[in-house]
């Protein structure tokens, strides 16, 4: 099937890769943004906390990395593939969705939890280690999304 001369299979595969990168990146941008606002607020009072806050702010950034990874994974899988059929294209597109949508939602929520966990660092500096674990609980689902997407993409036969 060709739409207006476009190789639809390839287009679908690229759409999948793009969705993963863009939704994962969006989730992370929002998450890192939320956490960044809180850390900036804390640092305006206590700039010394930078080292610990930056770790918490970085945590919601992984969804963007996972999205990027899925994008590249598609790229790697398509290397040397001459023609992507429409079926394969759809398969790749759907395979990208777990990482993409999980990344979007978990990135935002992880950012919120990170921001909340920053309060722990302010009020109980000794418990900073614990503060790192709470946002990681949210990230679990981004990882599962990544995992599902990786395995699904691998499953597509060329």
């Amino acid at each position: 099937m060709e739409w207006l001369g476009i190789n639809a299979g390839m287009a679908l595969a690229i759409l999948g890769a793009a969705l993963a990168v863009f939704l994962g990146g969006t989730g992370s941008s929002i998450g890192v943004g939320i956490a960044g606002q809180t850390s900036a607020g804390i640092m305006s009072e206590d700039p010394e906390k930078f080292g610990k806050l930056i770790l918490l702010q970085a945590l919601p950034g992984t969804q963007g990395v996972y999205g990027l990874l899925i994008g590249f994974w598609i790229l790697i899988r398509l290397t040397g593939v001459e023609v992507v059929t429409v079926d394969q294209g759809w398969q790749l597109l759907f395979a990208c969705l777990p990482a993409a949508v999980n990344g979007l939602m978990s990135g935002i929520w992880q950012g919120k939890v990170s921001a909340a966990a920053m309060n722990i660092i302010v009020k109980h500096p000794d418990a900073s280690g614990k503060a790192l674990i709470l946002p990681a609980m949210v990230e679990t689902y981004a990882i599962f999304g990544l995992l599902a997407s990786l395995l699904l993409i691998n499953r597509v036969v060329f």
Binding site: Y66, L68, L69, T140, I143, F144, L146
Partner: peptide, 19 residues
């Protein structure tokens, strides 16, 4: 199943390194 994260994290790091 939660331990599958080990493999996913490992692959995530490896693919980015590859890139």
């Amino acid at each position: 199943l939660s331990y599958t994260r080990l493999m996913a994290l490992g692959m995530a790091g490896a693919v980015i390194a590859m890139v």
